[in-house]
């Protein structure tokens, strides 16, 4: 089976609050305020693909759209034992939204050999939109299932996708090729790459395409971005007040506290 896993590189979601910064445009996070790392749900997707490959054979390709630093994410993917890596270089300095990303990924996929299964993460730890998988399926004209945590082959031509729901899960039978966005579960915790594989990952093929090479111009990309625009991004100001509730006895204090809470609740 031929599997493609899309990896998104994001700003460390654990960036300490006081380090987090917005760049000069006021529209996006400052990419230098923390380290870049692979989105965890994308790693869950890769782990799901690796388990499928371990059990049933096949080939895994990782693909990313982003600045030059996405090579680190792709190398890590190769170290986890993906076979090949591709990237579309984004040197516009702008962070694309889900629709633009889906468009670029679909163009890149069009240049590659056909896949049986295309995986994305459920959502990314930066914006959390959770749109790219579905939009990508739309661009590719393929069936799609979201919130999948387990995939099994069903005969030669179909796959069974287990989809998490609020009350349990659905098992969906889908024809290949299919797009799925992967959520995390106990059994797709991303593996730690072995050091030997980290070293060998540097010798595996990594192809980098420009936007032009996949057939989309910077203007087209910018036009795509116009569909949903960010007007302003700001960091909420944290405010805290401390007030001591007095009282002669414990009961007194409790009464005063209750009164105070009611007063505050009314004023909000």
């Amino acid at each position: 089976m031929n599997i493609l896993v899309c990896l998104k590189q994001i700003l460390d979601p654990e960036v300490p609050v006081r380090d987090f910064a917005i760049d000069g445009s006021g529209l996006q996070a400052d990419p230098n305020c923390a380290n870049q790392m692979t989105n965890i749900f994308c790693e869950n997707a890769l782990e799901t693909a690796l388990q499928l490959k371990d059990a049933h054979g096949g080939k895994i390709t990782v693909l990313s759209f982003g600045p030059d630093s996405v090579k680190d994410s792709l190398r890590k993917g190769l170290a986890m034992k993906a076979n090949e890596a591709f990237m579309v270089l984004n040197n516009t300095g702008h962070q694309p939204d889900s629709a633009a990303t889906a468009k670029v990924l679909a163009k890149a996929i069009g240049k590659m050999e056909p896949f049986d299964l295309v995986l994305t993460g459920r959502e990314a730890g930066d914006w959390g939109a959770g749109q790219t998988g579905g939009l990508l399926a739309e661009e590719l004209g393929l069936p799609y299932s979201a919130f999948v945590d387990e995939i099994e082959p069903e005969g030669e031509d179909r796959l069974i996708l287990r989809q998490q729901t609020d009350s349990g899960w659905n098992k969906i039978s889908a024809p290949k090729p299919v797009v799925a966005s992967i959520t995390n579960s106990d059994h797709n915790l991303p593996r730690i790459p072995k050091t030997r594989d980290i070293i060998l990952a540097n010798r595996k093929p990594l192809t980098s395409w420009s936007l032009e090479e996949v057939g989309i111009s910077e203007d087209e990309l910018a036009a795509e971005q116009q569909k949903a625009r960010i007007k302003l991004l700001s960091i909420p100001e944290g405010k805290s007040d401390c007030e001591f509730i007095e009282g002669d006895s414990l009961e007194d204090k409790i009464d005063n506290l209750a009164e105070r809470i009611v007063a505050i609740a009314r004023s909000v």
Binding site: D12, E14, P16, V17, R18, A34, N35, M37
Partner: peptide
Amino acid sequence: ERQHPYSGSQF
């Protein structure tokens, strides 16, 4: 990823 072992540090 972050060159320190304290994942989750707010500092």
